[in-house]
Design a protein around this nucleic acid. Structure first.
Length: 739
DNA sequence: CTCTCCCT
């Protein structure tokens, strides 16, 4: 981009050299062209030897080196699955586990040997299977509930460990514990250059480092050589399973040119659009453009801005090489639009030699791989979730990305051809960024994590060995929350209720809500209509909470008017929970999913709604298997009742809100004399989200219960979903907590 | 009147 004075090029750098070993070489794109000459193949012997000799192998493998597909096959071919044991490979994401299993099955040519197991779906055959791809989360449940010592496995491969997801980190702790009892369980941790050593440190004793001049040499050796504990090692070279080693494998990344701004930019959305269009206009390189922004809203704005400029006949881009297509990409998008960037170019696009400009949120950083990207434009910011244990609020803050993140984004180009990355900040800014962002475990609500650790039989949660240590405040909040929910007793041991909650796949608060519903159903004094509806209703609420983007957000004044009309027949002034119920009543009483048109009219995301129904029926099946009986929570009994609507809706609404409160009583706010809500826990100010029923149509209430909080645009904290409640319920439902 | 992304 010689004609663009905005950027300068400090150096040409091969991002592949130090790129955090990106995503899998799988995701949406099958790279069959990589075929049989993968860089990992050159390391086959080295890897097999390492696992003969050591208990732990940290594998530094870059994007596209083939580690996820090849290592399980090397191990299988070398007899690691000859006994009744198998090779397990974990992934942070379902789609990765599933596509990898399919691909390895076809490479081996025998699908009875390879399969995946993720929540609600499994193709793995336990009698014939040798290689099992799973999600971290699935394996965690397996180790807490079914196979605590992971006896089914001879080798465990933990992939994408550099992402440090909550589940990965918990799993690392669990595996460390298992290896104390079963040191023969081999562990392969696939990670990035920067933290390879810290993984080894976590699993293996550190070598005593020499002081003084030798230090540098020792460091270097310990970093790349085996981690040998000489005091325990036999002379005969027998394997020492408490030791580990690091192997590094080259990637197939093409070089990526990094270009910086001289000064930080003031309006990054506009600058992103300008930059993308300038690249389109002036670059000789083929290949599409991927732009990183922070929110779906910004993405929409950028697409609109770019399309306006492009369609303007006087615009300079008309003089450019060819046409371009602007596409949005973010999670909240309807499925159809979300698929667009991954589809092969249409014949029109090919004929006119059109270039795609994809405006995306963080989803394209690790979760999905957009094909054919030659240019990346990086605004340098991202939305980061952050849990504040003092207030108990989840927050979502726009902040500068880490260096690792910037490298990862840059690396999204250069996968199929040499790439360029335009950073909308200066090189000096880059140097001042954090090397890595804080791991999720240090930024999140730990309630579920603590429950899982307790379920593993750990009496002192603080003694559980984790790679990244969470803050004392967050741990204390988690323990407080579990205690208040009745899952922990005074000695911080699991109660019967807590043990029951371990089996639930929902977060503890939601589990508590469902248990409250079951309890209400079983009580004699409960009115019969409530008995028939309450568990099904709470299942609907539980499932809705798990699925985001159920409603499509109106954008224009006109759309808001239509939205008001659309919700009028399902609206319940008590708030969002019961309103959601009424939406699903529409489906329940006909037993038919809403049509695409009905969904559009009602501003409902059809895919999300279908997902709620799926999650709900699975939760119902779980409750049924656990609590049995002839319960017909979602069946014909319910259909008759919600279809006829002969029930007392006030009675039903109160019953549901009581159950919600039984789980979410820590999330209660009281109306202050100034008209603002304040959380009972800590007295922090809250506003009702503008998309909440209570904001647009509700009546004011002394107390509300809210599902979650998020940062509002103009400062302050918003909450949603909300329902009105009576203060007196708190004394009945959580007397130990609110006196 | 404005919610990043995963997972059991």
């Amino acid at each position: 981009m010689a004609n663009d004075p905005g950027f300068w090029r400090p150096s040409s750098s091969d991002v592949g050299d130090d790129l955090l070993a990106g995503e899998n070489e799988n995701n949406f794109v099958l790279q069959s062209s990589l075929s049989n000459f993968l860089p990992i193949s050159a390391h086959r012997t080295q890897i097999l030897y390492a696992l003969e000799q050591y208990g732990v192998l940290v594998l530094v493998g870059e994007t596209g080196c083939g580690k996820s597909t090849q290592i399980p096959q090397f191990l299988y071919e070398n007899g690691w699955a000859d006994s009744s044991k198998c090779i397990i490979c974990t992934q942070p994401r379902r789609i990765a586990a599933m596509t990898l299993a399919d691909r390895v099955a076809s490479e081996i040519g025998d699908s009875s040997l390879v399969g995946y197991s993720v929540r609600f779906a499994s193709t793995f055959n336990p009698t014939t299977g040798k290689i099992r791809f799973v999600t971290d989360g699935w394996l965690l449940r397996e180790t807490t509930l079914a196979d605590p010592l992971l006896k089914q496995a001879s080798v465990l491969i933990i992939d994408e460990a550099h992402e440090r997801s909550l589940n990965t980190e918990l799993l690392l702790g669990v595996v460390k514990k298992i290896r104390r009892v079963r040191p023969e369980l081999r562990l392969v941790v696939c990670s990035a250059t920067l933290d390879a050593e810290s993984f080894l440190d976590f699993f293996c004793k550190k070598t005593t480092r020499k002081k003084g001049t030798d230090e540098a040499a020792t460091r270097k050796r310990s970093r790349w050589g085996p981690r040998v504990d000489t005091s325990e090692r036999d002379e005969g070279g027998k394997p020492c399973l408490t030791e580990g080693t690091i192997i590094s494998v080259d990637g197939r990344q093409h070089p990526v040119d990094i270009l910086y701004q001289k000064e930080p930019v003031s309006d990054y959305v506009k600058t992103v659009v300008d930059t993308a269009l300038q690249i389109h206009e002036s670059s000789d390189m083929d290949g599409d453009i991927l732009c990183f922004l922070t929110t779906g809203e910004e993405v929409d704005e950028a697409v609109e801005m770019a399309e306006t400029i492009v369609s303007n006949p006087n615009s300079r881009t008309r003089k450019g090489k060819g046409p371009c297509v602007c596409l949005p990409l973010y999670a909240g998008l309807p499925a159809n639009s979300q698929r667009q960037p991954f589809l092969p170019k249409s014949s029109d696009e090919v004929k006119s030699n059109s270039r795609r400009i994809i405006f995306s949120t963080n989803i394209a950083e690790t979760s999905v791989t957009v094909p054919n990207i030659a240019h990346v434009v990086d605004c340098g910011f991202a939305k980061m979730p952050y849990f504040d244990p003092d207030t108990g609020f989840d927050r979502l803050i726009t902040c500068a990305i880490s260096q690792a993140s910037a490298k990862q984004r840059a690396g999204r180009s250069g996968r199929v051809m040499p790439g360029k990355c335009y950073r909308l900040f200066s090189e000096k800014n880059f140097e001042s960024l954090q090397t890595e962002s804080a791991p999720e475990i240090q930024r999140t609500n730990l309630t579920s994590l603590i429950l899982t650790i307790k379920a593993l039989g750990v009496s002192n949660v603080l003694s559980f060995d984790l790679m990244s240590v969470p803050s004392v405040e967050a741990l204390a909040h988690g323990v407080e929350c579990l205690y208040a929910l009745g899952a922990l007793d005074d000695e911080a041991e699991l109660t019967e209720l807590g043990k029951e909650m371990v089996y639930f796949s929902t977060e503890p608060r939601v589990s508590r809500m469902l248990l409250a519903a079951l309890d209400m159903e079983s009580r004699e004094e409960t009115p019969s209509m409530v008995k028939r509806l309450i568990v099904g209703d709470c299942l609907t609420v539980a499932a809705s909470i798990q699925v985001r983007n159920l409603f499509i957000r109106p954008r224009t004044e006109n759309q808001w008017r239509k939205y008001d009309e659309a919700v009028s027949d399902i609206l319940d002034r008590s708030g969002d929970h019961v309103t959601m119920l009424h939406l699903f009543d529409l489906v329940d009483h006909t037993n038919k999913m809403l049509s695409g048109e009905e969904c559009r009219e009602r501003f409902v995301n059809r895919v999300a709604m279908q997902r709620v129904l799926d999650v709900r029926s699975r939760l119902a099946r779980f409750l049924h298997s656990r609590f049995g009986g002839g319960s017909n929570w979602l069946g014909t009994k319910r259909q008759e009742v919600v279809g006829s609507q002969t029930y007392d809706s006030e009675e039903r609404s109160e019953a549901v809100r009581r159950c919600v409160t039984a789980g979410f009583f820590m999330n209660v706010a009281k109306l202050g004399s100034d008209g603002q809500y304040y959380s009972l826990r800590g007295n922090f100010a809250l506003s009702i989200s503008s998309t909440s029923v209570l904001h647009r149509y509700g009546e004011s209430s002394d107390y509300i219960v809210f599902g979650g909080t998020y940062d509002a645009n103009r400062g302050g904290v918003d909450c949603k979903p909300n329902s009105t409640i009576c203060g007196s319920w708190l004394r009945q439902l959580a007397p130990h907590y609110w006196r």
